[in-house]
Amino acid sequence: MFKLSSEGIDFVKKEIERYETRRSAIIPCLYRVQKENKGWVPPEAVAELSQLMDLPEAWINEILNFYTMFNKEPIGKLHVQVCCNISCCMNGGRELASHLNKEFGVQGNEISKDGNVTITRVECLGSCDTAPMMQVNDNYYENLTPEKAVSVIKELM
């Protein structure tokens, strides 16, 4: 069962002071949980945050379920997000995504067998001028070809 670290708890306490309303601190706090829990937010974290932040569970759950940036299920060590929005799509974003799926033997949002990679298709990441592109964990990799993408991921593994 997930529990925030003591630094995490301090972070949450500082964060709720930072905004005009405590409700505004939900997103940074959920990000903190996601960071501490290998890239995903477990459902029990909602109850923990609700207690820490003194906010209703429903409010935190609303935010958690609304944003796709919060992963509600376990993901691999590398979270590869391939942009499939219009500019990337025109430059082969979808083909890139299917190539990566085939290369690492995964489908949809599942984790590869070695636990290293999860590949998801996402909407615009705001880097249209360098399409096609992908985001691996926190970093952008741009102007990709399928081969280049595979080698980037393999290097990071």
């Binding site: 909602v46 109850a47 209703p56 569970e57 429903a58 935190i60 759950n61 609303e62 379920n65 796709t68």
Partner: peptide, 16 residues
């Protein structure tokens, strides 16, 4: 207790 969860046409009301 109640909130609107998920997004778009998958939105639904419910409790945590």
């Amino acid at each position: 207790e109640l909130g609107i969860f998920n997004r778009g046409d998958r939105s639904e009301i419910g409790t945590y």
